[in-house]
Design a binder for these strands. Structure first.
Lengths: 315, 315
DNA sequence: TTGTAGGCGTTATCAG
DNA sequence: CTGATAACGCCTACAA
């Protein structure tokens, strides 16, 4: 491994000087600068990030917490973070928390042990545990008081879901809710319910967990009471479509279904899933930008990104 | 941050001793051991991994290279790696290479700069670039001479695809190939072709890229020459199904389609996709185990994992 | 403008 | 068994 010392020897200056020109901090004469830079190029010097992190007690690693990378919504978000990180010469360590507060704490500890520069979290109890820690934190898809967050416009998304169903002629609507631990799911349902009320359309709200527990027979009867079903995300919507198909209930003829996320595969299911597109990739890259701004001590504000309806065959 | 020094003070011994008992290397009297451990518990001491990595020139981070985490095959693999890593007190940094040798090199450099303990790579040119580097390396889904690798039994998978189609009565079969840069795709096609030949079933082989380029009309005519289509992976299979659906070609009535991977969503497309299941998660966790064995200097051998056919409605 | 020296938190090599 | 002390590679006062 070629170190700053080698460069010093090669260019006949002290390590301090080398460090200075490499970080363009402090003064250095034209000539010295040139010599050092040449030496660096010649020896193909790359600074050791570990040493730097130890010295400055701040690594160029950011920790990212997600419930489960296997959930098809997250890869795009993560890719967005990753790309932004690399552009800024940062690296990303991902932690899967499985909604488990203990795992979450463990990862926070790991991030600390690695002098991580900051944390982006799409998972729940962080805010509480994070109090003791002073590392910059950006919440993703989740808003908590006194924390910077970024999310898509879930209220609007919910409204779009409902309005579209109403326009398509659904008489009565079922709002399937995701876990109420997440503000994003709560807001989607809220937005939908608002619209439904405003349009005086009848509706019922049910957590997906309840729906899933019902025996097939009962579930079918229950669903048939509605002309439209609003799902909290595309994965749920696909499960609903699947169930409807196995029970031979025509979609969109008998029931219309609308999802949320616009995952890649949502256009491949049958029928093609009408859904709300949220900018997953941009959510990620923006989260990273926010984190950097925070870390730089800039005044930053939470951000909400726009969503839009994607019409397909399920409605 | 509480350091080894604080523990030393707290338990009235030297830092050297503290380090020894914490790493259970070297001797320490019962009493000293107790005191140090108690102090560590009391102060909630966590070793700084950066300092450790600098000192030992080996971090507990492993680098993972994938073409694109957004490709739905990889999240499971990565999750497998991640879980195994955490169990062993390691962390994972992921790099998306987009099949770009330059990005790949850049990540390799980054891994080096971080004193990474080893590398797991599911991408192509690594083996070449890696020669200069002595870090342990495990290749995933890709075999290269003189490197440890892990993959699923692609030959068998290809055979299963073909045999199933033959059994289902396909007269003539189209073998759609993935990028020939990947040994996994090559082997799948090879396995299929072997079977087809053995059963004296007519077939044609075509890279998916070619198929994609054909104008719709020509593509339809071309496809209609076959009773069965073998795809290199589920994503491709879904695209094929989609095309067939838009051209109103009945599946499996007119053409049967079989995929490869058994992605989560493959059961939600219409018709449900018959496919080959490969153990993505286990591939990942086994890759990590191999890497650790390599790093420990143990004699390890490349590994091939079993696959199986999943029957659904597309055949 | 440049060099010396101290320190980031650990581990490891010596003596004692 | 235990304690100084020197690294690991880099940055940064402080001197010169």
């Amino acid at each position: 491994m070629v170190t700053i010392k080698d460069l010093a020897k090669e260019s006949c200056v002290s390590v301090a000087t080398v460090s200075r020109v490499l970080n363009s901090s402090g003064y250095a004469s034209r000539d010295v600068k040139r010599r050092v830079l040449e030496a660096a190029a010649k020896l193909d010097y790359k600074p050791n990030e570990v040493a730097r992190a130890l010295n400055t007690s701040r690594s160029n690693i950011v920790g990212v917490l997600v419930p489960d990378i296997t959930n098809p919504y997250f890869p795009k978000v993560i890719r967005g973070i990753e790309d932004a990180a690399i552009r800024n010469n940062y690296r990303v360590i991902i932690g899967n928390t499985d909604h488990d507060a203990e795992k979450e704490m463990k990862y926070l500890e790991i991030f600390r042990q690695n002098n991580c520069a900051g944390i982006i979290s799409a998972t729940w109890s962080v805010s509480r545990e994070h109090r003791a820690d002073s590392r910059p934190l950006v919440l993703l898809d989740r808003v908590v008081e006194n924390h910077i967050s970024i999310e898509s416009d879930n209220l609007k998304g919910g409204r779009l879901q409902a309005e579209h169903l109403i326009e398509s002629g659904a008489d009565k609507v079922l709002v399937v809710k995701g876990s109420s631990d997440y503000s994003s799911f709560n807001n989607r349902a809220l937005g939908a319910e608002e619209s439904l009320k405003a349009h005086k359309t009848g509706y019922d709200t049910l957590p997906y967990a309840h729906l899933e527990q019902m025996p097939d027979e009962a579930r079918e009867n229950f669903m048939l009471k509605f002309g439209g079903i609003i799902c909290p995300n595309d994965v749920t919507a696909c499960k609903v479509l699947k169930f409807l198909a196995t029970r031979n209930i025509p979609v969109p003829g008998r029931v219309k279904v609308v999802g949320y996320d616009n995952l890649d595969f949502s256009e491949y299911v049958h029928p093609g899933l009408t859904t709300i597109e949220q900018p997953a990739y941009d959510l990620g890259s923006n989260a990273f930008d926010l984190l950097m701004a925070l870390a730089a001590g800039e005044a930053v504000e939470s951000r909400i990104m726009d969503v839009k309806l994607i019409r397909r065959q399920s409605t």
